[in-house]
Design a protein around this nucleic acid. Structure first.
Length: 943
RNA sequence: GCAGGGGUGGCAGAGCCUGGCCAAAUGCGACGGGCUUAGGACCCGUUCUCUUUAGUGGGUGCGAGAGUUCAAAUCUCUCCCCCUGCACCA
């Protein structure tokens, strides 16, 4: 049995002592392998391990392939969440404390977490310890935290470059806002971490027929303007008259308050709903005059508290009008104008024949009843979806266009002509509440953006994208799509940890924006630290020289007070490391971090430093379920490693699924790996019971397997297909060793070579056990620093493998034959006396291959010599039915095959408890002899 | 809605790019057997369906439908369904 925790500790200490993974530039080719650094507000769990272990395994592999590999790690503390946790701890938030306790954080540490810097430090240490326990080959001298003052200087430099290029812009943008805290809020600031969804609506201006005041109707579907029959207001609400940019509007009182956060708005006076209900309004698109009615469903706080009524296409409007009709309102049915048609597509959906789609949907969902609000909502959703998908405008200037297109066009037209305005609302079904208890509204705020939509920048990225390798390759599409899609990105925050925003020093830089080209910093950080450089010395000229090779080192040295030699060492380090990079993360970063990573590299760094490769690994589920705090199935990484062993956890997460798909972490999987490792360990420890000797057929077979395995595995590793590689290296090897031993293999030299190479190839993924096996095998170097085995193509022996394959399938056939014959055989022992294996004559192989290529029996009959034509044609006719599907077999000669079977005789004999005889077809007296095929010997079971 | 990914056997999950060796790897489950006092672990076999009964057979089949092809899980088109992301949140 392997004592996992003991050997893990042993090898981690040994690597540490030898500084095995601390690297400096040398004459080898460099590889800089980085993973997106973790955010230090919660401990790592076993799900996080996937990304970092993928990175480590890849780094360990490349190291073995002879590259000088740097795997650094830093920690991310910038931004709001840590601050938010500190605030909540200060208030003793029970929900949060509960969460922290899942991770076994001691009470006295939780108490100290009202200090955000303590949180950052605490989890930085916790994560470092976890990563060490996982056996990562990280150069820890390079560890830094994103709020380090030295790093801030680097970020400031980065922003000065963006500014120079004109990529920083100022503008207004809608954000979720708390009027009590007077600050922008995000998900972590809200009750139950609800994400406030901001939606853009169109507010269409309908002029009051008798005054210069406009009704502003908020709508998701401005294109239905052609079907408006009336407006709806809430008769129980109060309304205000407000002034925006010199125009006067009616909006509900509640709306007036929240809209003041989106517009410069003056409240001029009040007006009752009753007064509005007496009015008529002019449709700005059609010029029609329409009445104002009370609508039971109108929410005063949503949008403007006024909506337009399109009964043909809006179930709520239809129901409201029906209701009013029954109360005596005069509503002429011909006014229900259909403006969107669904072309008849010969399917059971609605056809052009339906006059009032809203009614049709109401009826199909709720029959004649109209009382259930939820069902009307459902009808609405269904109708909207259907029309958005298939609807065609049947009226207006965009007649004939799909509804979805017409919507955008009409909206744009109306806004530019001044007949509509954009209004933002919180789109969540339930109100979103700030942790302080106030309902969140939308505010338009003035702020700085990075404009990733900049045409020239995007063009550069676009033409670069195909140069960058993406693993798994099916994500290439997502990367391309994301790079097209990304546009304006707000880049400063009013609160949080991190670097001050240089152009608005009361704000800080948004936390993803400060971590884009940061892997560069790993290459210089230990030099800055060991030479005790102060942050104020890190002026922009320093980075210009070190990263961009610009400027004069003497004057920079004079300017900054940093030694020339230090500056030069930094520059050399950047130039050496930052050319071959591989970046790793989980898929949630594609649309944000990865895009910012790529764009910022291209904007700031010279072409040779642009990303070479990105790798995205899938997530981890636990026993088939998504890991989540609410399910209580989150296993902290340290605890998981202690319980299951670092190597087993690494292996199961990396090797049991393809890189891009989710892996399922199961205890059973862990157990099966442990069992296999134990078996391997026992075999390795008992190697001295075997002896060296001359090579037999089975030895050649094992050599052949080993070398073709190395070849296949190397190709898979190069593609980061760890599952494929380790199925070959691990699972298949174990089976092959078993087969080898079962079939009488016992050559110590062959076994040792196989196991040596197996141990080395296991090193990237299970480094501790690999080291252990490697040493027990008698080696005294670090497996971690050894060379990856190379395939000896000479040893790949197709014939040896083919013979073994034939023996295996013959074993199957014998089983079948025995079970079939046992029914008729008169045998008390249930075991046959003997089994004759009859190997096909060589001419059959020739004839078969000939047939497989020509597919014509008559041609083959003339070509094959050494057998009479009758026998030949009888043989060939067996394939007549499936001529087209015949494939060449590359069979081995009958004498070789016979030799192979002779060697396996003992094995087969013991398997079936019968005498085994091997005969050549020519020599056999058996009636069944002629049935033998080149790759399928005939079997004669004798009872 | 937009964008990206996907739909394969009882389940999970490969295969699809590069069509044929695919009734479809592997794992789990189920069934039968071995080992065992028993349970677990482990080992062997079966696990779409029909047929044959001394092994190399036939049918159906990879979301639905159509197409290309001598040949389609794999290529093309249409449709249906599922998952993920959509901005101030790391």
């Amino acid at each position: 049995m392997i004592d996992y925790s003991n050997i893990e500790k042993k090898w981690q200490d040994a690597w540490d002592k030898e500084k095995a993974f601390e690297v400096e530039p040398n004459d080898k080719e460099s590889r800089l392998i980085t993973a997106a650094f973790p955010y230090v507000n919660m401990p790592l769990h076993i799900g996080h391990l996937r990304t970092y272990a993928t990175t480590d395994t890849y780094a360990r592999y490349l190291r073995m392939r002879g590259f000088n590999v740097l795997f650094p790690m830093g920690f991310h503390a910038s931004g709001i969440p840590i601050l938010s946790i500190a605030k909540r701890i200060a208030k003793s938030d029970p929900e949060l404390i509960e969460e922290l306790k899942i991770f076994n954080i001691p009470d006295e540490d939780i108490k100290k977490m009202s200090d955000p810097l303590f949180i950052a430090e605490y989890f930085t240490n916790e994560m470092t310890e976890s990563m060490k326990a996982a056996g990562f080959s990280i150069d820890w001298r390079r560890k830094f935290i994103s709020i380090d003052p030295l790093f801030s200087k680097f970020v400031e430099w980065q922003f000065s470059k963006l500014k120079e290029k004109g990529y920083l812009e100022k503008g207004v943008h809608p954000v979720g806002w708390c009027t009590n805290d007077m600050s922008a809020i995000g998900q972590h600031d809200t009750l139950h971490d609800t994400h406030p969804e901001i939606e853009e609506l169109t507010g269409i201006k309908f002029k009051d027929k008798d005054s210069e005041i406009f009704f502003v109707c908020t709508t998701y579907r401005p294109e239905t303007i052609y079907g408006v029959t009336n407006l709806f207001v809430n008769k129980n609400s109060g309304y205000s008259i407000v002034e925006i940019k010199g125009e006067k509007f009616y909006v509900s009182k509640a709306a007036a308050a929240s809209l003041s956060n989106q517009f410069e708005l003056k409240i001029l006076g009040e007006v009752t709903a009753d007064a509005l209900l007496k009015k008529n309004a002019i449709n700005p698109e059609t010029g029609e005059s329409v009445p104002v009615f009370p609508g039971f469903f109108v929410k005063e706080g949503f949008g403007t508290g006024i909506v337009m009524s399109v009964p043909a296409h809006a179930p709520f409007d239809y129901v409201a009008l029906e209701k009013l009709k029954s109360e005596g309102y005069n509503i002429p049915p011909e006014s229900y104008k259909k403006v969107i048609a669904i072309p008849d597509k010969n399917k059971d959906g609605q056809s052009e024949g339906v006059d009032i789609p809203a009614l049709a949907h109401l009826e199909s969902i709720m029959g004649d009843s109209r009382s259930d609000y939820k069902l009307i909502e459902e009808a609405t959703k269904k109708l909207y979806r259907e029309e958005a998908h298939h609807g065609i405008m049947s009226i207006g200037k965009y007649e004939g266009k799909p509804e979805s297109e017409a919507r955008e066009l009409i909206k744009k037209d109306m806004i530019s002509s001044g007949t509509a305005i954009s209004i933002y609302v919180i789109g969540n079904a339930e109100p979103v509440i700030c942790r302080c208890g106030t309902e969140i509204i939308v505010k338009k705020v003035d702020q700085w953006f990075i404009n990733y939509g900049n045409k020239a920048w995007k063009d550069d990225v676009r033409s670069f994208m195909s140069d960058m390798k993406v693993y798994p390759p099916q994500l290439k599409g997502a990367f391309n799509a994301a790079s097209e899609w990304i546009g304006l990105r707000a880049t400063e925050r009013s609160q949080g940890l991190g670097t001050k925003f240089p152009y608005e020093p009361s704000h800080i830089i948004e936390s993803l924006s400060d971590s884009t080209i940061y892997p560069v910093f790993y290459t210089i950080f230990p030099i800055l630290k060991s030479d005790t450089i102060k942050s104020e010395q890190l002026k922009p000229e320093f980075f210009d020289f070190v990263v961009l090779n610009k400027g004069d080192v003497e004057s920079i040295s004079a300017e900054t007070g940093i030694d020339v030699s230090t500056i030069k060492r930094c520059q050399e380090s950047v130039n050496y490391w930052y050319v071959n990079t591989s970046r790793h993360s989980a898929p949630d970063l594609i649309y944000n971090h990865y895009m910012m990573y790529i764009y910022n590299h291209i904007a700031i760094l010279p072409k040779k430093m642009w990303p070479k490769q990105v790798v995205v690994n899938g997530m981890v589920t636990y026993e088939g379920e998504k890991m989540s705090k609410s399910l209580g199935n989150v296993i902290p990484l340290l605890q998981g490693i202690k319980k299951y062993g670092a190597d087993s956890v690494r292996f199961i997460e990396l090797a049991s699924a393809d890189i891009g798909t989710d892996t399922n972490f199961t205890e059973e999987g862990i157990k099966s790996i442990e069992a296999k490792n134990n078996a391997l360990y026992e075999l390795v420890s008992s190697l001295d019971q075997y002896e060296a000797g001359s090579l037999s057929h089975i030895d050649y077979w094992l050599y052949s397997k080993l070398n073709s395995k190395i070849k296949k595995a190397t190709e898979s590793m190069d593609r980061l297909s760890f599952r494929e590689a380790y199925t070959e290296i691990y699972y298949n090897s174990i089976t092959e060793i078993k087969q080898y031993l079962d079939k009488g293999g016992k050559n110590q030299i062959v076994l040792k070579e196989f196991l040596d190479k197996l141990a080395l190839m296991l090193q990237p993924i299970m480094p501790h056990i690999a080291e252990e096996l490697w040493h027990v095998l008698g080696n005294n170097t670090f497996a971690s620093k050894e060379k990856w085995p190379e395939a000896d193509m000479q040893m790949i022996n197709q014939e040896a493998e083919k013979i073994e394959e034939i023996i295996d399938s013959t074993e199957q056939d014998i089983k079948n034959a025995i079970s079939l014959t046992s029914k008729t055989a008169k045998s008390e022992t249930k075991k046959p006396k003997s089994i004759n294996i009859i190997i096909a004559a060589d001419w059959k192989a020739k004839a078969y291959d000939e047939l497989a290529s020509t597919k014509k029996i008559s041609d083959v009959i003339d070509k094959v010599k050494g057998v009479d034509k009758a026998t030949l044609s009888e043989f060939l006719s067996r394939f007549s039915k499936r001529l087209n599907s015949l494939e060449k077999e590359n069979p081995v000669s009958s004498s070789q095959l016979k030799e192979g079977f002779e060697e396996a005789k003992e094995y087969l004999g013991s398997k079936f408890g019968a005498e085994i005889a091997i005969e050549l077809e020519e020599e056999s007296k058996s009636q069944r002899a002629k049935r033998a095929l080149p790759t399928k010997p005939s079997i004669d079971v004798i009872w």
